[in-house]
Amino acid sequence: MTTTTLIPPSKRKLWLAAIKPPMYSVAIIPITVGTAAAFSETKLFDLKIFLTFLLSAILIIAWLNISNDVFDSETGIDKNKAHSIVNLTGNKSLMFWLANLFLALGILGIFLIAWWQQDLTVLGIIFLCCALGYSYQGPPFRLGYQGLGEIICFFTFGPMAISAAYYSQTQQFSLSSLIPGTIIGISTSIILFCSHFHQVEDDMAAGKRSPIVRLGTKLGSQVLTGSTILIFVLTLVFALLGTISLWSLLIFLSFPVAYQLVNHVRQYHDQPEKVSNSKFIAVNLHFLSGILLALGLILPRLL
């Protein structure tokens, strides 16, 4: 009989997990798709505004990620999470103020866009997005603990963020931009949904009623399958109706990643150590499908 010695992850790997580089796609994709939708309909594109919005969105996501770790540290739900940035630094107060600095810088970028355009609309939308983002984990709301995180995620990173990006280019709204907004909202919510499968015990111990705690892992895997299929069904229906370009069907090139995700979770939904990487497969799906959708929106104009 042999004994296996478990080697703890290196500090570098823990820091990478804490910083969550792949998760910043949830900032990049909505701004990119919203800007592509604006270009598709109006031929308008302002590179300065696009890059400013993109950087601001990344900074706001940094605030959201760090502050969520800070708020989770107060409930004890992250006590077994080695890559919590609070656990790594041992300084909750420092992380709280660092998060607020990122938020202030992100909002400053959005304020610059509002100042350039002499229009506060985009700033108002992003303020609302930030308020919803805070309500997810921040006291006294902690709506994520009631299982409402996916709904907040859908609206914040879907229709609202894409409408804001669209408006930042055109200074007008478009009902048709809600279609890519809905698609991106679903794929973003899937990332959060997948993050619950491997931490059911910790969530239950902390009183967090995540969707997977409520549904169970098996039914949760079935909901994931339905939600993932919905991304492609909606794109196909709206493309055939002529509401969005047929080029949007390029999104189907991401179907192999979608299949990998649902098949992986279907097999390992009740095995935390194996299903834990499903959120990264979901990030891959979100990023690839989002880029393909954006490409499908702008190609008709470019061609």
Score class of each variant (00 low, 15 high):
residue 93 S to N: 06
residue 140 P to I: 00
residue 126 I to V: 15
residue 94 L to N: 04
residue 100 N to E: 11
residue 158 G to F: 07
residue 146 Q to Y: 12
residue 155 F to V: 14
residue 181 G to P: 02
residue 101 L to R: 02
residue 163 S to P: 06
residue 109 G to W: 07
residue 116 W to H: 12
residue 156 T to G: 08
residue 186 I to R: 08
residue 190 I to R: 14
residue 159 P to W: 10
residue 165 A to R: 05
residue 112 L to T: 02
residue 130 C to K: 01
residue 151 I to N: 00
residue 106 G to P: 01
residue 101 L to Q: 00
residue 96 F to Y: 09
residue 140 P to W: 00
residue 92 K to Q: 01
residue 169 Q to I: 08
residue 189 S to C: 03
residue 142 R to C: 15
residue 134 Y to M: 09
residue 93 S to M: 07
residue 131 A to D: 07
residue 121 T to S: 15
residue 112 L to S: 00
residue 99 A to K: 13
residue 135 S to Q: 06
residue 181 G to A: 12
residue 116 W to N: 13
residue 124 G to D: 10
residue 127 F to M: 06
residue 152 I to N: 14
residue 116 W to P: 00
residue 111 F to T: 13
residue 133 G to W: 12
residue 161 A to V: 09
residue 91 N to Y: 04
residue 179 I to G: 10
residue 132 L to N: 09
residue 190 I to Q: 06
residue 111 F to R: 03
residue 167 Y to T: 14
residue 118 Q to R: 04
residue 130 C to N: 05
residue 136 Y to M: 06
residue 91 N to L: 02
residue 167 Y to P: 11
residue 175 L to T: 05
residue 136 Y to G: 07
residue 177 S to I: 07
residue 171 Q to P: 00
residue 158 G to Y: 06
residue 115 W to K: 14
residue 98 L to A: 04
residue 126 I to N: 02
residue 157 F to D: 06
residue 161 A to Q: 10
residue 182 T to S: 15
residue 112 L to G: 00
residue 120 L to A: 15
residue 151 I to C: 02
residue 112 L to M: 00
residue 156 T to M: 14
residue 105 L to G: 11
residue 130 C to I: 09
residue 165 A to T: 06
residue 116 W to Q: 13
residue 180 P to N: 09
residue 113 I to M: 07
residue 114 A to D: 09
residue 164 A to Y: 04
residue 121 T to Q: 12
residue 143 L to T: 08
residue 144 G to M: 03
residue 123 L to A: 05
residue 112 L to R: 04
residue 176 S to E: 01
residue 167 Y to C: 04
residue 99 A to H: 08
residue 176 S to M: 12
residue 171 Q to R: 13
residue 116 W to I: 01
residue 174 S to Y: 05
residue 118 Q to P: 06
residue 188 T to P: 01
residue 176 S to N: 02
residue 144 G to A: 04
residue 155 F to T: 09
residue 147 G to T: 10
residue 97 W to I: 07
residue 100 N to S: 10
residue 96 F to K: 15
residue 159 P to Q: 13
residue 148 L to N: 00
residue 123 L to Q: 10
residue 107 I to R: 10
residue 123 L to K: 15
residue 90 G to Y: 02
residue 172 Q to M: 02
